[in-house]
Design a protein around this nucleic acid. Structure first.
Lengths: 206, 206
DNA sequence: TTATATTGTTACCCATGAGTAACTTAAACT
DNA sequence: AGTTTAAGTTACTCATGGGTAACAATATAA
């Protein structure tokens, strides 16, 4: 008889497993929210995607809205992480803006980011609502700061950085609603077109 | 005793009155949808805004979703009307694009237009959903045609008109979510900034 | 092996809100 | 005037779905 090897600690401890489960729930939920919208997605739907029953979800989340909040936390980390790395360089403002857009177009197809973009500010709890709006404002503000830096160092023309930041951010956020990686348009072409628009506009000056 | 003057036909006949009531319902509904979102707005809420009771609404609308559909019809008429007048001129593509953006920024603060932008495609009935998406696609297509005309006549630089049309359209549609006429930013400043971005981008080329 | 905390289940409660039936009041056209 | 149509009301039905209580199974630790 083969001697049983005593298994050392399982590959993943409880906390890690729990975290994985939560991540999976958030992913499934975000995908469902993007597919059918928040209100048309029931907790039973989400539970089914995750192959558990509804009450089990409550072991990982506080309530339905908490899913949205947790998704947003993940999205916030990723977007702010991108902004951190972009603004940490010694490049000029315009180059940082380019880098941000490139990075943003890469992550904007992720369901959790898409979910955040589509559902931000849609909270029933006024505190959660405020937090969501503030989080978005903070990000927008950081984009504005990049523009301001560019205006300052001369790489970006003088403009109302508040307005321009919102317009640009809305344009790239919009990508999350229509762009599909499997579709006709390649990622590179998309980035190229966005960058050209941002840099030069559309007017022909030749 | 004063002789009673026989009143001639009332100022508004029934069909007109009915139309006015319907318009008012749509307006109230659109405002409520923008304030709280479609699903958080009950028919009782809308009825209350209109100072009637819920069943009365059913004299004017088929069901809740029908409100969204009727709002969209109004929005479609206005946006396509703008596109009609813009494309009827002999101006070049870039000038037509400018004219469209100017006109669009003017109407984008209207609750019914905002409601359409926010809720397009969000239909339970698959046929209504398809209709909503097609309507939006048609408009987007017409913007693309303006760009294509501009590329053709040399007023707009060569670009992927499909992508650029969506990006620009998303940027201006986004305005409906944040711009308030009572706010800090004047309408003229907003239009100026949008047109500058569209024309020249943000890069400083001096 | 046994005790304990962790996951999970079945079966329910209950608030909400869309939609309807049946009835009342007001207006308009002979 | 009286009849008809429009417009509105009160009082319901009923499906949906978030959330919970109470119980069952599984895994970890002693």
């Amino acid at each position: 008889m083969v001697k049983k090897i005593k298994l050392s600690k399982p590959a993943l401890n409880r906390a890690e497993k729990r975290q994985h489960k939560l991540d999976s729930i958030l992913r499934h939920a975000a995908a469902a929210f993007m597919d059918k919208g928040y209100y048309k997605t029931s907790l039973d739907d989400i539970a089914r995607l995750h192959k558990v029953t509804k009450p089990t979800l409550y072991y990982y989340i506080k309530n339905k809205e908490d899913i949205l909040i947790k998704c947003e936390d993940v999205a916030s980390l990723r977007i702010n992480g991108l902004l951190d790395s972009v603004t940490a360089t010694t490049e000029n403002g315009f180059q940082q803006l380019q880098a941000f857009i490139e990075g943003y177009v890469k992550i904007v197809t992720d369901d959790i980011i898409r979910c955040h973009i589509r559902h931000r500010g849609q909270r029933e709890d006024p505190i959660a609502r405020e937090a969501s709006l503030n989080m978005h404002r903070d990000i927008e503000y950081r984009v504005r700061e990049i523009l301001a830096k560019g205006v300052d160092d001369g790489s970006i023309r003088a403009c109302n950085t508040t307005i321009i930041a919102i317009l640009l951010f809305d344009a790239v956020n919009g990508i999350s609603a229509w762009y599909r990686e499997e579709g006709e348009i390649s990622h590179d072409e998309l980035v190229e077109q966005v960058l050209m628009l941002v840099a030069e506009g559309v007017k022909n000056n030749t």
